[in-house]
Structure formats: C-alpha cells, structure tokens
C-alpha cells in the first residue's frame, strides 16, 4: 500500500470506525503518513476551536424558543386546522352536488405554479423513500396514492427518491431524479386530473418559467404530469417527450 492509497482508505476506514490491517501496517511504517495524520488532527482541532467560538445570538435563541414553546399558540393553530378541516368537509359535500367543487379546482396554470412552489420549498417529508429502481418506487407508491403511477426512465438522469406531497389540497406523487450533466434535480409530479378538466375537455399543456425554474405540465388519461427543473427549454421538452412516450 502506498501513501496515496493509505490516505484514501483512511477516509473510508475512519467512516466505518476501524482501520484495515493493511492501513494500520502502512501507518506504523510510514513517517510521512504519521505526520499527515497529525496534521489532519490539528486541522480538525482548529476547526472545532472556531466552531466553539461561535454561538447563536441570544435573540435568535429566544425567538426560536418562543416559536416552539407556545402551547396556547399551538392550541389556536389546532383550532384553525380543525376549522379548516370542517370547511373542507363542507366543500366536499358541495362537490357531491357538483356546485361548489368547480369553483375550487385550480386552473392548469395555478396547478403548475403549485408544483413549482413545492419544488422550490422542498423539505424532506414524512412519506419518502430512496428508490433504487422504478419498480421499487411503483410498489411503494401503490396504496399511498389512489391512482396508478408509472415511474418513467428519464434520459440522462437517475431516479433518487419517491415521495408523497400535498399540492393544492390533492395528494401527488413526486419522483426526484438527479440530472447527471447539470448536477441538478428534476422533479416529476403525478396527480389525478381534476374532474373539471375532464368535464370541460380541456387540452392541458402548460409551460411556465420563473425564479430560474421551468415547468412543463400536461394531462394524459386521467393524470396530470408536471416536470419541474432548472434546465433549458430544449432539455425540458426532451424529458417531457420521453415521459409521454413511456406513459401507458
């Protein structure tokens, strides 16, 4: 084992908490690597010293404590949520009559904006899985959403995760891919097509861009698809076309 190999392996061995026998032997015999290790430990100590000298401002700590320790505010928020849920029930009752529902169906443009907003504000959510394959993602999504999701292969990108998100009050499946060339992420949203679109036989094909993000949204056989990414127009169209060709 030479010094370069030792130093590379040390990173990974350190990660696992143990040093391999070969690496240990090299360290015992190599003065340069012993010095290198000492320097690494000194650098680490200096960074820790810097960290220990930096504290969150007292005012920040107070604001965050206030936010997480307000039981009354929490109760008021719960009450508002209850009222919102009750209102949602009323709306749903109205939908059965087919009168109120259409007023709250977002337009395709609004829906696209909601997908983009989720892309911009994405946080790790409660229902999420790292997906090694489209099949694994499809199996995971089954039962979690009440529409079939065919997970497409995206050219030049690798599937990373599947998750459930809430878009304009509807459950949507979100598939995240890592685009190799640009080192950015591509989000593909799939949701049930609003009945208003079907009823009005809307030809939905919306392209939007803003905040450096592009969105291509369309409907196909009862589902809404939206591709959201920070790619150029040509790449977006290629991806959308590839997905269209794969969807049953």
């Amino acid at each position: 084992m030479n010094c370069q190999e030792y130093r590379k392996q040390r990173l990974l061995d350190h990660e696992d908490g143990t040093l391999s026998d070969e690496a240990r032997l090299h360290l015992v015999e190599c003065g340069q690597c012993q010095m290198f290790q000492k320097e690494e430990e000194r650098l680490r100590a200096e960074l820790k010293k810097l960290a220990n000298s930096e504290q969150a401002p007292v005012a920040l700590r107070r604001r965050i404590s206030g936010m997480v320790e307000r039981p009354n505010a929490s109760k008021r928020r719960d009450l508002r949520r209850w009222m919102a849920a009750a209102a949602a029930v009323v709306l749903l009752a109205g939908a059965t009559a087919g009168i109120l529902w259409d007023r709250y169906t977002p337009s395709p443009e609004r829906l696209a904006q909601a997908f983009v907003a989720d892309y911009l504000q994405y946080l790790p959510g409660r229902e999420q899985i790292a997906a090694d394959s489209p099949q694994q993602a499809e199996e995971w999504l089954q039962g979690r959403v009440d529409f079939p999701v065919h997970v497409p292969t995206v050219p030049g990108a690798a599937l990373k995760t599947a998750r459930i998100c809430d878009i304009s009050g509807r459950k949507a499946a979100l598939l995240q891919y890592h685009h190799n060339d640009s080192n950015t992420s591509i989000s593909i949203f799939v949701a049930a097509e609003p009945r208003a679109y079907e009823r009005e036989k809307m030809q939905v094909n919306v392209e939007t861009s803003g905040h450096g993000v592009r969105s291509v949204l369309w409907c196909h056989r009862g589902l809404v698809y939206d591709v959201v990414a920070t790619l150029n127009d040509s790449s977006m169209q290629q991806i959308a076309e590839a997905i269209r060709q794969q969807t049953p």
Binding site: A56, L60, I64, S65, V68, E69
Partner: peptide
C-alpha cells in the same frame, strides 16, 4: 423541540 434547542448553535454555525 429538544433537538432544535440542543442543536441551535450548530445550525447557526
């Protein structure tokens, strides 16, 4: 809540 309080300095850094 505990995690936020315990890690606030680290997060700020």
């Amino acid at each position: 809540s505990d995690a936020l309080q315990d890690n606030l300095n680290d997060l700020y850094r």
